[in-house]
């Protein structure tokens, strides 16, 4: 008998199994352990990706599986990139992405900065602020349609209370000019808390004694903010922007519930547009090409961004 755990494990292995794995190298055993994960990754990630690339060169339609499939070369890509409607959805997405991130970073950081001053009840405030994030996006999209309702909606009422404009004189969802902003407002309402939490984590990671040292070194509040707070929170902030950027690039549920892409198609973001092509018009080959274009775009942007993020972290 021995107390060595490795030897104990060896003696506990059934003889038949022991015989079978005896000849295996460490490398082979390592492969056995990793294999299930690799298999799963191949099955649900890599294979569908390759299959989608394949489909993107065809005129396949998933609702007509028996029809003969022709390879059409790069025609799908050509049609997408020259389609002015698709460029409009891209513009709508860019508008949505830019302004949601802009407002969420601005408001989120400010809230975090305020919450971080140690005042009474700041835990309660944090909980209250974080509430919207815990709701389902579909529910949020749905009840904001009521808040935006011109006659009975709370939103229109609040705006009219502060500006004196007649509440029924404007429709956030119905108007071509206002609808793109209506989705920005709701997403900001829902996800600013997320940015705030990450910024708060960043702010809390700065020890008090650094500010004390800076005060002794006669750095003004303003200089402390720009030379200590901002550089030390920046990696956290960039991470929040990355998460929000990726999330909002594929934004679907909230906007579908809120505006359904309308009026016309001014709030039809690319993911909504793509879903229509794929599962309403059943242009599977075309939609595959569309998906690949989006994939390359997001992947390219994200890798550039992550590189920048790492550089900031190393500083």
């Amino acid at each position: 008998m021995t107390d060595n755990p490795i030897e104990r494990a060896a003696t506990a292995t059934p003889p038949r199994l022991a015989r079978r794995i005896k000849g295996l190298s460490d490398r082979a055993i390592a492969w056995i352990f990793v294999a299930p994960t690799i298999f799963l990754l191949l099955a649900v990630n890599i294979f569908p990706l390759i299959w989608t690339i394949n489909l993107s060169f065809t005129n396949f339609r998933a609702n007509r599986p028996n029809r003969e499939v022709d390879y059409v070369g790069l025609r799908n890509y050509e049609r997408i990139l020259t389609d002015s409607d698709i460029w409009l959805t891209m513009q709508a997405t860019a508008h949505f992405l830019f302004w949601t991130i802009f407002f969420q970073v601005l408001i989120g950081f400010t809230l975090a900065w305020l919450i971080n001053r140690k005042f009474k009840g700041n835990d309660l405030w944090t909980t209250i602020i974080v509430l919207p994030m815990m709701l389902s996006p579909a529910v949020v999209g749905n009840f904001w349609t009521f808040l935006y309702q011109p006659q009975i909606g709370l939103f229109n009422y609040v705006v009219s209370f502060f500006t004196g404009v007649d509440p029924s004189s404007f429709e956030m969802i119905g108007s071509v000019n206002l609808a793109p902003w209506s989705i920005v407002i709701v997403d900001t309402w829902m996800w600013t808390p997320f940015v705030m939490l990450i910024c708060l984590a960043g702010l809390r990671s700065i020890p008090d004694y650094i500010y004390e040292a800076a005060a002794i070194d006669r750095a003004s509040r303003w200089r402390q903010f720009w030379t200590i707070t901002v550089p030390m929170v920046l990696p956290f902030l960039m991470l929040a922007v990355l998460f929000r950027g990726i999330e909002n690039f594929k934004m679907f549920d909230l906007v579908v519930q809120l505006t359904g892409g309308g009026p016309g198609s001014v709030t039809e973001l690319t993911s909504i547009n793509l879903k229509r092509e794929a599962f309403e018009k059943w242009r599977t080959g075309y939609a595959s090409a569309y998906a690949i274009i989006l994939f390359v775009t997001v992947f390219g942007l994200a890798s550039v961004y992550v590189k920048a993020l790492n550089k900031v972290k190393e500083r």
Partner: peptide
């Protein structure tokens, strides 16, 4: 304020600006 007093202080823990 500390700035107005014009004092220099060495803290017990290393209070350097890490970045």
């Amino acid at each position: 304020t500390p700035a107005q007093r014009d004092v220099a202080m060495v803290f017990q823990q290393y209070s350097l600006y890490p970045h």
